[in-house]
Amino acid sequence: MLLEKLTTACGLPGFEDEVREIIEAEIKDHVDSTKVDRMGNLIAYKKGKKKSPHIALSAHMDEVGLCIIGIERDGTLKFASWGVDARILPSMHVLVGKDKIPGVVGNKPIHLQREAERRSVYELEAMYIDIGCETKEEAEKLVSKGDFVAFVSEFTEFGENLIKAKALDDRVGCTAIIELLKEELPYSITAIFCVQEEAGLRGSAMLAKRLEADIVINIEGTICADMDGIDEDKQVTNLGAGPCLSLLDRSSVYQKKYLQAIVKVAEDEGIPFQYRRSGMGGTDSGSYHTGGAGIPCIGIAVPCRYIHSPVSVMHKSDMENLIKLVKAFILNGAERVAGK
C-alpha cells in the first residue's frame, strides 16, 4: 500500500530525500516532466488537453521529529524538537540520521524517581537519546550533530477502516496527489511536493513566487480532537465524517468564492465533507496566496487524531472521499470558478 510505504519512510524538514525518491518513482510514468528545485521541492507537470485553468496540487513531504544538537561524553545524544509535544517523547523508539541508527529516548526508572519527579513532566532539556554507545567517540562514528531523528511506528490497520501510522501529516496529502496524477484529467496539473512545511512553510515560500497556476488545492492532514472530554465546539474535525475544508487558519483566510465552488460540487455529487472548525494552525496555502501576485487556494485535509505523534490515526474513507472530491472539483467546478 502506497500510504504505508510513504509513512514508513523518513523525511524530517530538510531531509526529505527518501520520501521524494519514492514519490518520483511512483509518478514518473504518469506525468510529462518532473524537476527538483534547489531547496528540494519536487514539482511535476502533467499537460492537459484544455489550456485553462491550470491547477496546482500541493502537499508537503516533511514530517515532525527531532534533530541532534549535541553528543555527550557518555555517548548519549541531546536534541531539539520540530513541532513535537515534549511530553510524548520519553520511551520513544527513534531512528537517527541517514543510516537510521536505532535509539530510544531514555528516562529514569520509576523505582528511582522521587515523589515530586513522578508527578512532574520531563523537560525537553533533561531528555536524551540512547543509541547504545558508551563514549562520545563511539557515538560520533555513527551519528553527527544536525542529524534528523524520526519516530518509529509500524503502519497498522485496526478498528473499522482505521489506520495508525507516523507522518500521516502530510504523507496522506502526498498519497492523494499521486492517486490524482494517475487519473486522466482534462486540465494541466502542476503537482507540488514541498519540503520544510513543518519548519514554517519554507519550501512553498520560495516556490510560490514563481508558481504559475490559476488555483492551488493544498492537501493536508489536519487536527482532529473528537474525543470524550473535549467540548464539541473545540473538536475541530471528526474522524470518518469526510474531508475537511478550511475556512481560515493562521496563514490564510480562504476565499469564499472558491470554498463555495467546492462545497457545491460536494453537495451535487453527494460526497461527504466537513468544515475545519478552527482558526489555528497553518498550511502552505499561506505561501501560495501571498506569493507573487497571489494565487487563490482551497485547503482540504484528512482529519488525523493524535497528529504530530507516532500514533496518528485516520479513517480510510476520509482519504478516499478527499480524492473523490478533489477529482470531482477539477472536473466539474474548477473551470467555472478559476478558468480564464
Binding site: 475556512l247 478552527s278 482558526g279
Partner: peptide, 17 residues
C-alpha cells in the same frame, strides 16, 4: 468573527479574524 460551530441549543462559537 467567523462562525466555527453551531451547538445543539443554537448558540454559535467563532474563530477570531
Amino acid at each position: 468573527l467567523m462562525v466555527s460551530h453551531i451547538d445543539k441549543d443554537g448558540f454559535l462559537r467563532f474563530a477570531s479574524i
